[in-house]
Every structure is written in structure tokens, then in C-alpha cells.
Design a protein around this nucleic acid. Structure first.
Lengths: 313, 313
DNA sequence: GACGCTTACGTTCGTCGTAACTATT
DNA sequence: AATAGTTACGACGAACGTAAGCGTC
């Protein structure tokens, strides 16, 4: 048994049981991969892949178990490399963050500025995507950490740590009557054309839920995946906007009026997502703590090791 | 990086940093081990071991991290082998149980009889030891599962699953006055010479606690590690015995009188201990469920994966 | 007939073990 | 002086790549 064999079966499984493709991806020859796989199967005394004649057509039941363990081993090898990098060159390295627009634009800038000041030698990269994409980037190693609000619970191999809670506000053109409603109600909001986030983004699900709970059918005329688009169209008076509170800045957004709407919606929790059992470089812990001060190294470690999710909050 | 290297550093660390000894244990040459370790260190870019001249004297800080991960990888390789064995030969294999006297003698016999009937092809072995030894047998792979009551909480790499609760009784010669005390009190018990379990065995800690809680100083004239010894000396009227309730059998123990004492002591919980993230053969799940019916495969798997300990009960 | 996996074979690279050497206690 | 680890070197074996063969779609 050796590591190559584990890499091979993993890649073959990942590539839809196509050995040739896997071989290419691993920069080696197809017969080599084929042979190593058979060898592993012989050694373990089981078939990992089901074959129709010569073609691989499925993963057997023991194969699934083997693949699951193999994957864990490969992740751990990654972790070993990480440990090496960490100590060989403390403070030097890279940090890849996958996140959504709202976080990247309105929440992270100050955190990142502080982080870059403290770790000038860390190459930071920011990948933007949907909450789902963001999680998958972490799973496949493209990113080290994910930051998002939605759709982020259903990955077995991710640990999700709550960072902060936030709620929404209503924005409209400065003299819009909605700004003078007191008290502000969902019914009042539902009377106007609405502009807000796309489904699956930035807590949109809780917006839907609130209206649904009162039997209201909001007239969403435009759904965007980012706050800036929403603001732009609200400025043009296409409708009123439901915006994440942190996306409104009285100085920048002088052309918009704003009223708090926290009492109308459940608050959303933004979370950090990490690969389970990952080994993190020291500066990653620092970044996390910079973003969510209650997430100390101790707490993060505990969550990474066990399954305990909602530590803190 | 390869698996040998991980095996080497693990064995060297385990053997007190003695490379020659590790080489012997791994049936290979000392220079080979030495070289592979250096190679791994070079590849990772760190020192795993601290050297004084040529001698290894300590594990460095990164070394600790590396060793921890390496160990996990090696365990996973073990698991792979297990998966192979399981599917290659379902129902054939071995099961090694590490436990203490009380369990082996009074609780397990019926469980094991049923198990052997159902899995005649499984070679069963029973290892007896102190609770601490029992846990260590599981950690180093000598045993698959540990069953014990005491001192079983403080191993990070073990998952402990509660199986059943039990309490104590008092045994004495048939006409002993303690048998007629009503209600039975700790004060009454403390008046007589006592025979009970050794510290660190069979819930002794809770016996101490009960007396201490009432400010009593029991006169323990003999502490044994097994129930049979206790009974024997109680028969000889050297004192009265505090015994695990399940160790008294009215038919076998006709020469002893017994009274319940559950109301005097906290009840103890006997637990099964498993290595975290172990891959278990199907019959092991069956054995566990035979012993503690609430510990279904689902529950055991959940506990093995995460850290969640006291599932059930 | 095109694509995809396996078998066969020669080359290469890596690992292992022996022996000689050096450092530590 | 003895014990323990490193360096050096030669031999073996395992893995790889190329080329040809066979099955499946």
C-alpha cells in the first residue's frame, strides 16, 4: 500500500471513473494508474471499482469506505505540508478567502487591512462566488476559509463557525414615503416594488420567510447578487431596497435614505467555513480572530477536531 | 513523502527517540530509518527531532504537529486494512476485548456467549487489566474495544460510550447484623471492617466519595481488584463487603447474605471505549449492540466521527 | 471504428542493507 | 570503550512509460 495508490483511486473516483483522464491530471501514464489500482485492490482483498469487462462503471460498497478513508489520508498529507510551510517560514505564506460580495465589499475591508498590516508577508487572495461555490472552494482546497451567510450548513466536511449576526434596513430615494412610516411594517414595504438579493444570497431566505409568515406576496422587481447593484437601482427609483444593514453607509450613500428594519426579519448569522480536521497556519487563526474576536484558536481547534459546530454565540 | 517515513518517525518517537531500537522494531536497518527521517525533514523544510550532535534528544514543536498528523494517517491505513478484511471475509476475523475483572466475570459471559453463537468464525480474545491498561490496549491497537468503569475519561483519542448504570450492595456472612439494619446507612457500614475494590477499580472512587460526603472514615481492611477475592474474604468474616450489585448471585453465593445499597452511593456508568475515527468491522458493531442495545451502529458511528461522547443514556 | 482499459517489457529511480566512519556518553 | 547516528556504496526491486492487445460502446 502506498500513497500513490490512494491518490490514484481518489482522482479516478473524482473524475467519474475515467482512468485516462485521471492519469493525465496526475501527470502520469494511464497503465500505471490502472496497475496500481489493481494492486491496491489485490492487497486489500476487495474490489474498489466495479467493472463491466474492462470499463470502470461504479464504486463498490467497500470502495466507498476505502475512498472515504483515502481522502482523509490525502487531506492529512496536505496538512503535513502546511505544518512544514508554517514553521519553515512563519508569517510567510498565502491565505485564500472565498466569500460573497456583501462580505468582501462591506465587512472584510477593515479586517483585511489590519491583517495585511500585521502579516505583510502573507499573500492574500480573495475569491468571490455564491455561498455554494464558496463552500466548494474550501472543500477542494482552492480556498482556505469560506465566509458566507447562506446555504452553508449542508456540507459534511466543513466546520461552520458563527461570526456575527446582522439584520436588514430599507433604503429608498431620500424623499420616499416609506422612510416616514412609523412604525415600519412588512405590509407597508410590500406595497412598493422591491429590490433585494437573489435567492441563495445574503440572507434572502429569511426575507422570504418573513413575508411568507404574514401571508404577504412581495413584489420583487429585481434581485441582485450584490448590494451595490441594489443601491444603484434604488437610486434610480425603480423600487425600494431591502439591504444588509452593514451595506449602508451614510457618507457614501448620501443619495439614499435608510430606515432600520431589524424588527421585521430574523437576524442572519454570517459564518466562517473551514475544512474539518484541517491544519491551519498561525496567521489563519489570527485572521479568523480578527474577523470574529470570540473565535480564539482554542475554540477553532476544538471545532476542527470534533464535530461541535455552533461553538460560541 | 511516503508512508514509510511516517511509520519511521512515529516509531522513533514512540521508542523514546531511539532510532536503532525503532529500526529493529520495524525489521529494517538503522541507517535506512535515519536517512528517511532526514529526507522527510528536508522535504517539509523543518526539523522534526532536535539533535545534540548526532543524537536525537527531543521532538521539536513542528515535530509534534507532524507526529500527530502522521499518527492519524497510520491509523487510517489500519482502517483501510480493516475495510479490506471486512468485505473480503464478512463474519470472519477477530475481536479483541480489553476489560476489567468485574466485567469479564459477571457481565460479559452472556453477551459473549450470544456473540460467539452468532459469529462462530470470529476469534474472540479477552484481555484483562486495570481500567488504565485497558484504555491503553485500545490506543496501541492491542484491543479493539475497552470496557471499564473508572479512569476512562482522560484519553483524548478514545471515544467513550455509556453502556449501563449499576450500583452496589453489601455482602456479609449470612447472620451478620448489618443485613438486618433498616434503613441501611453509611454510618452503620462504617462501623465494621470493610472489604472492597482497589482504588481505580470498579467504581471505587464513588465509594470513597459517598463516605467522605458524610464525614466518615471507613475502615477498609482489604482492597482487592476483583469481586471474587472480596467475596472470599467476606466469607471468612474478615469484614463486610461493598460489592458491585451484578457480582452477587444468590445461587452461586449461598454462603453470603446481601442487602441492596443503591441508595447510599452514586450509581456508576460502565462504558465502552473505542479509538476515535476507527473503522469497525460489522461484527464489532454487533457486539457493542449486544452489550448495550441502545448503542446502534448509527450512534456509534456518530460518536466515532465527531467528538460527541455521551450519546444515549 | 473509436475510445478505454489491460498486458508486456525495458528503463529508471528509489529504497534497502552492509560496511566504514564519526560523534556522544 | 561502548553506544548511537551518519555517510558511502552497491544490489535489488518497484514504479513508470512505451507499445501492442483486447473489449466495449
Amino acid at each position: 500500500m502506498n500513497l500513490q495508490q490512494l491518490r490514484y483511486i481518489h482522482e479516478v473516483a473524482r473524475r467519474g471513473l475515467n482512468v485516462s483522464e485521471a492519469a493525465d491530471a496526475l501527470f502520469t501514464s494511464q497503465p500505471g494508474v490502472s496497475k496500481q489500482i489493481r494492486q491496491l485492490e489485490t492487497e486489500l482483498g476487495i474490489e474498489i471499482f466495479e467493472r463491466h469487462g474492462k470499463r470502470l462503471v461504479a464504486v463498490t460498497q467497500p470502495g466507498r469506505a476505502v475512498l472515504a478513508i483515502a481522502e482523509r489520508v490525502l487531506r492529512d498529507l496536505d496538512n503535513l505540508q502546511q505544518v512544514g510551510d508554517e514553521f519553515a517560514n512563519e508569517g510567510v505564506g498565502s491565505l485564500s478567502i472565498a466569500t460573497t460580495h456583501t462580505q468582501a465589499r462591506y465587512v472584510l475591508p477593515s479586517v483585511i487591512r489590519d491583517f495585511m498590516r500585521r502579516y505583510p508577508q502573507v499573500k492574500l487572495s480573495l475569491h468571490q462566488g455564491s455561498p455554494r461555490q464558496v463552500c466548494e472552494m474550501v472543500l477542494d482546497g482552492t480556498a482556505d476559509i469560506a465566509i458566507a451567510t447562506e446555504a452553508i450548513a449542508d456540507y459534511d466536511d466543513l466546520v461552520m463557525l458563527p461570526c456575527y449576526q446582522w439584520n436588514r434596513c430599507i433604503v429608498a430615494t431620500p424623499r420616499h414615503p416609506i422612510l416616514r412610516e412609523a412604525p415600519l411594517t412588512l405590509e407597508a414595504i410590500a406595497r412598493y416594488p422591491l429590490i433585494t438579493y437573489d435567492d441563495a444570497f445574503t440572507g434572502r431566505s429569511l426575507i422570504n420567510k418573513a413575508f411568507l409568515g404574514r401571508g404577504l406576496k412581495p413584489n420583487v422587481v429585481l434581485s441582485a447578487i450584490d448590494s451595490d447593484v441594489i443601491k444603484k437601482y434604488v437610486e434610480m427609483d425603480l423600487g425600494i431596497g431591502i439591504l444588509a444593514r452593514m451595506a449602508y453607509n451614510p457618507e457614501e450613500d448620501r443619495r439614499l435614505g435608510m430606515v432600520e428594519a431589524s424588527h421585521l426579519f430574523e437576524s442572519s448569522t454570517t459564518r466562517i467555513g473551514l475544512r474539518k480536521r484541517a491544519w491551519l497556519r498561525a496567521y489563519i487563526y489570527a485572521f479568523i480572530e480578527g474577523f470574529a474576536p470570540h473565535l480564539t484558536r482554542r475554540i477553532v481547534d476544538a471545532a476542527l477536531a470534533g464535530g461541535g459546530t455552533d461553538a460560541g454565540l
